[in-house]
Design a protein around this nucleic acid. Structure first.
Lengths: 240, 240
DNA sequence: AACGCTATTGGGGAAATCCCGTATGGAATC
DNA sequence: GATTCCATACGGGATTTCCCCAATAGCGTT
């Protein structure tokens, strides 16, 4: 699997050996290759909000992280959510959540020096590869300067691997919206009421509502507003 | 601006000189740096669905491309829409659209050897950087192998620059939402009802409705669903 | 002190949405 | 050919949202 690095960024991921599905081992390999302390990947399925994580952290920190529910407040995850470029942790907002997570991490011997590289897929799926390393600030800067590009490519690569794995893709490609559903969702995003859309399509407003309901279900959305938001973020429709 | 390459991938884009806003010159610099024939960026602003393009192609090809409406069928754009990893043009489907565009491009001296690197932002914004280069297949493969990860970083960088200068500028001149309005709009995007939000914030559902109304007015939205969509595409809130 | 702006709360009623059904035609499956 | 699944279409009735109205309190500006 050693040449996975060289293949990272290439298109035909199918050529990768099956062993590449062992994400944990892959992350460890990245860790050793670049001499960082830890490598972590977190990806989220936007439909059911499920999070997939693979890390090289110790079991103790993993458990503490989970039991404390840090994934809800982790500033690195939040930054990845709104940024497109890599985010150096030194630029994170020093808010209460930051202190909570990083002080706790420090107790487990994890540095607050690191970087998170966000990735987004075509289905609203988001992920992020994080690398952390102690040592002097100068060394860290040099390490970034040297390898950040490669890490960016690796982040894309890992995310691609994860969402290509069955557990992810089946759900993501599941929401195959029908023509009518997308059409009506689009009009809804344009600010039209159900009756408006019914008039436009010359159908009953009852029917419009049914399609909206179906769209909500497919997007696992509780309300139409949420469905519109998700559909936009997934590129299914456009903001009106 | 020469060190923009070194800065590409770093976080603080504000440090870039203003000259970096000259995208065409930036693309030319990329072209010369890597010795490729042409570099092109295409991005879409989801708010108005406008397509922003910057290329190093000649005027003649640009005009032909536009007049023929090739942006509708360009296989490189379509592949970028679906893929997350860089797409080598050699892997494009050899369909009718492919032949139409690439035969035409060939007449203008543009090779069918190239790669397109898709990028996605948090607001439904998408873009892609394309590089094309003639010569032997072996040379091209070597060039990719050597520089693909740098190109990936550059693609992110260029997209970030374009979006920042385009859609965010409208956001800055846009409505000044109050804290409460953003907060309630965010909860709405998460699928909460007005009563839910009232309970969460321990205020009256009447108040929630007032803030939503205010938000709608500020966003010139007719419905809450439209307001949520607009707010997401403008980066005011995040999809729930 | 007066003014403007925002956050808050509330009523009443119209309008829209949403959940519960039913039904039909087409496509895929068995 | 029967069955299953889904997109499509429609209605009744309960729930929710939305729009008109008014009112109080805080906060900064003039």
């Amino acid at each position: 699997m050693g040449d996975a690095f060289d293949q990272a960024g290439l298109i035909d991921l199918a050529e990768l050996p099956d062993a590449a599905q062992d994400f944990d081992a892959f992350l460890r390999e990245i860790r050793d290759r670049f001499g960082v302390d830890h490598v972590a990947y977190a990806g989220m399925n936007p439909i059911n909000r499920s999070v997939i994580g693979h890390v090289t952290y110790g079991k103790d920190w993993q458990e503490h992280y989970a039991t404390q529910g840090f994934h809800r407040i982790d500033p690195t995850l939040h930054s990845a959510r709104r940024s497109i470029a890599p985010v150096d942790w030194s630029r994170l907002e020093r808010d209460l959540d930051y202190l909570t997570v990083f002080r706790s991490a420090h107790d487990f011997g994890i540095s607050d020096q690191g970087v998170t590289i966000p990735v987004r897929g075509p289905y609203g799926d988001i992920g992020g590869l994080s690398l952390t390393c102690g040592g002097s600030k100068t060394e860290w800067k040099a390490l970034c300067r040297e390898n950040l590009h490669v890490w960016q490519a690796l982040s894309v690569h890992v995310h691609d691997l994860v969402i290509s794995s069955d557990s992810f893709s089946s759900l993501l490609r599941g929401p195959s919206m029908s023509m009518r559903e997308r059409e009506i969702l689009q009009w809804t995003a344009e600010g039209k009421s159900q009756q408006d859309i019914a008039d436009i399509l010359t159908i009953s407003h009852r029917t419009v509502e049914v399609h909206l309901r179906s769209a909500r279900h497919k997007l696992y959305a509780l309300t139409t507003a949420q469905a519109v938001g998700r559909a936009i973020s997934m590129g299914l429709i456009y903001p009106g």
